[in-house]
């Protein structure tokens, strides 16, 4: 039986008097795991502890069966890590940056070139290999970061906010890549503060809050709780009164408020059905914009820790 991808026991880390992570005890087997939490919840601290960049104040962590202590490095051949910070090797071309990373890992010049080209191709950046990092958009640099994490075909991939600043097509490509890795029996830990980003690829999540593990388990179970809470959608368009009447008649909305002639707030406990109806109306041209409150993560915190979550 193979070792778990990640095992922590009472893992804690303080920055002076600030608590970064407090008593995390968790075991993660294979698959995709969403690491959820708002900024400052301890996601990046956990990532840094897993990759040996910082050391635990208390407790321990094992990655792929190896305890991470100061001086550990062999295991990182099997671990790919894309940090949350931007790439600051500005003057390097993408291919040279990746070759450097591959050569530090022990590759010769030719092997490093092949590996770098393959990784760039995997993230759809093959044609941008010769572009300097400081001439790239943030989204492109995000993909280069992911490419460097993929260099050694890792068994464990750690992605810290990988979808920040990237366009929808690259976003889909990144999520497809995550799914593909999981199909290959590998483990991906995907840190994010946006629930629906993670929800698209996995139902398994760890929820951190103020450095503590707030919940671990199936996202779908929590989703059911969220759906019982009223949600608000703001719709702008024309002929909205007719649309609102239809929604009320079908019991899809529980309340509505006309802001002006072209704008309406809709309260609902059936958000998926509402979105479906609005999509139909949008296709007919009567809706110009649609906004839903993106507070799902905050709602989860409220449910799990009460009103003190924020």
């Amino acid at each position: 039986m193979s070792a778990p991808a990640l095992k922590c026991e009472n893992l804690s880390r303080w920055y002076g008097e600030v608590q970064g992570l407090a008593g995390l005890t968790v075991t993660i087997e294979k698959g995709i795991i969403g690491l959820l939490g708002p900024n400052g919840s301890g996601k990046s601290t956990l990532m840094r502890l897993l990759t040996g960049q910082i050391h635990a104040s208390r407790g321990w962590v094992e990655v792929l069966g190896q305890r991470i202590v100061p001086g550990t490095y062999e295991i990182f051949r099997r671990v790919g890590y894309a940090p949350g910070e931007d790439v600051h090797f500005e003057s390097e071309r993408a291919i040279d940056f990746l070759k450097l990373m591959a050569r530090i890992g022990g590759d010769g010049a030719t092997q490093a070139q092949d590996r770098a080209e393959k990784a760039l191709h995997t993230v759809g950046m093959g044609s941008k290999a010769g572009v300097r990092l400081d001439a790239m958009s943030k989204g492109m640099r995000q993909r280069v970061k992911i490419a460097q994490a993929l260099l050694f075909d890792p068994d464990l991939l750690l992605l810290d906010e990988p979808l920040n600043g990237i366009d929808p097509i690259s976003r889909r490509g990144t999520l497809d890549l995550v799914r593909k890795m999981a199909e290959e029996d590998k483990t991906v830990i995907l840190a994010s503060h946006v629930l629906h980003e993670v929800e698209g690829v996995t139902d398994h999540m760890l929820l951190l809050h103020h450095g503590r593990l707030l919940a671990e388990g199936r996202l779908s179970a929590i989703r059911e709780l969220i759906n019982q809470k009223p949600r608000r959608a703001t719709v702008r368009g024309t002929d909205l009164s007719k649309l609102a009447a239809g929604l009320l008649a079908d019991n899809i909305v529980s309340g509505l408020e006309f802001v002006d002639d072209g704008c309406i707030h809709l309260d609902t406990r059936k958000l998926p059905e509402l979105l479906q109806r609005l999509q139909v109306a949008g296709a007919e041209g009567s809706i110009h914009t649609l906004e839903t409150d993106d507070q799902e993560l905050e709602m989860i915190y409220e449910m799990l820790v009460g009103g003190s979550a924020r």
Partner: peptide, 19 residues
Amino acid sequence: LYEKGSVGYLYTRPAPRWK
């Protein structure tokens, strides 16, 4: 590299830091 945090790219490679 420490100030920018980029040293993390080097230190998470499978090679000892002294190299």
